[in-house]
Design a protein around this nucleic acid. Sequence first.
RNA 1: GCGCCCGUAGCUCAGUAGGAUAGAGCGUUGGUUUCCUAAACCAAAGGCCGCAGGUUCGAAUCCUGCCGGGCGUACCA
Length: 592
Amino acid sequence: MKLAIDILEERISDVMASVAGREGCAAIVRPTTDAKFGDYQVNGIMSLAKELKTNPRKLAEQVVEKLDLSDICDKPEIAGPGFINLRLKTEYLTARLLEVNADAVRLGIEEISKPETVVVDFSGPNIAKQMHVGHLRSTIIGDCICRTLEFLGHKVIRQNHIGDWGTQFGMLIANIERRSHQALQGKTIGVIPVHLAEFEDFYREAKQLFDTDENFAERSRAAVVGLHSGDQAWIGRWRALVTQSEKHYQYLYQCLGVKLIHDDIRGESFYKDKLADIVKALQKDGLAEESDGAICVFSEGFKNKEGERLPLIVQKSDGAYLYATTDLAAIRYRVGELKADRIIYVTDARQSLHFEMVFAVARKAGWAKDNIDLVHVTFGSVLGENGKPLKTRSGENVKLKELLDEAVQRANAVVKEKNPELSEEEKEIIAKAVGIGAVKYADYSNNRTSDYVFNFDRMLAMDGNTAPYMQYAYARIKSIERKSESKDVNIETELAGVKELNLSEPAEVDLAKCLIRYGEAIEAAASDYRPNYLTSYLYELAQKFSVFYTNCPVLKAESDKRPTRLLLCDLTRRTIKHGLSKLLGIEVVEQM
RNA sequence: GCGCCCGUAGCUCAGUAGGAUAGAGCGUUGGUUUCCUAAACCAAAGGCCGCAGGUUCGAAUCCUGCCGGGCGUACCA
């Protein structure tokens, strides 16, 4: 069924159009800013009145006169300078709740009518390096966008554009070769790093050798040449490195509950054979030209420090290709092969200019026609308490794994303190869900465009808009379920027979109204790619549930009240679970 | 220099086309438990929404200028 807000928007806009005698009127229905105004307010009358140069209250009256919303709302009220205030009818609310209740899978939320093929480019870790905190946001925000668009009915194609190609691989595979020789000489040394921490040393070792050992540097350059020319020995070493290091980020995806698999990988190496053609095509179309020895595309409106035109370099003066070239090849592939209607890039804001230029070139070259949506979803940095990008004391990037481990460890300490009687195994499961959930939720609940300060204590707090608070609300409902058995209440049979509801307490009505608005939050989150709209909604829901919980006994309620309350509990539980686990990829727990 | 982002309560942050008296949480102060998890709930105090102009019935939101911060700005990604 359609969302109330969408039905209202449509009907009121139609009436406005007929009153005004013109197309394209927007009612701009929004939740009220204050409950005393009802449930929804129409904001569009006043701006329309301005355009028509008429009195807004008079216009509102004319609209209300012709408006029939009697199946949804009480009589609309005109207020202030020209608002129309709407209050949902209890019968509508009841019917809607029962509908949501009957829909176990989608909670009464419709799929969109025009599904698109959406390619989402996110995460993109570098091979042979540990994932660090800088990869967190792209990985989880991208995942949430995928999950949300998928739920709404789009065909989502995840693309993990990993950094698995480039000159730095020369020294890495040269180091594999060097280590192999040592191993053959009987030295007990791992040839390819296996554990996460070893990658760091391995990379550092290669880098140091490259900088200090001319023979090694020479060998590294030979390795690059070998790699590019398809030498099997070098390719074998490279592939071993890629395979080994992929295992590590797959492990982290699993920890984070991020849905990215091996098949989603289309790394830089995937495009390596397509790059020459990209440059050739750009030259052939006269879009690319040589400048200072590099092949460049100059687009309108891009300037450098000196105010001169700024190029998108697609081939360096030494003949090598760059990420701009790869990104162009990727657009071509995604539009041509994957049939994308929309391509979303989830990377930090610092790459804005790069994508602006890439998009401009892709448009000019005709690889992305106007009907293809190219979207750069940016986000801010994760900061430490000092307001600078989060680093370790020694100034290194904080490893993602270490960050998550600490979160789980801290969560474990809290669980131990709050609920000591749980078994070790239960505590571990809860700590993992709470710890990881806290990190993710804290990230999601911030507006993605701003930087935020990372703080374990705050994200693990039980008060406020945090994962533990949400999980706690869920656990309380599960607890009611468990208690019901000992009180001879059979929830299933009571709910199965519910045909009518008895909403009388304010806390019940508030909760009910919140429940039927889940779809609004999802729509808002999807259209702006902003997970914080989801967390805000869920938090509001959990708060309303807490108020309901303190004011309205469920199991001890009179028989005329109990089914309604059981239903409110169950719908809240299902909505929280859906939001957290299905859309945000955060685990819920049975008890805390 | 130019471009993009940001500046909202003591702190951390919301604010979904320009809408009604700017909202949360933390912290502070006070209150609630023979009752389904008090990891909860209720209440109070706390704001020239960086500054100054402008646009209009109405501005945290749009425009201009300024101040302060971050990022980017030709061969890294």
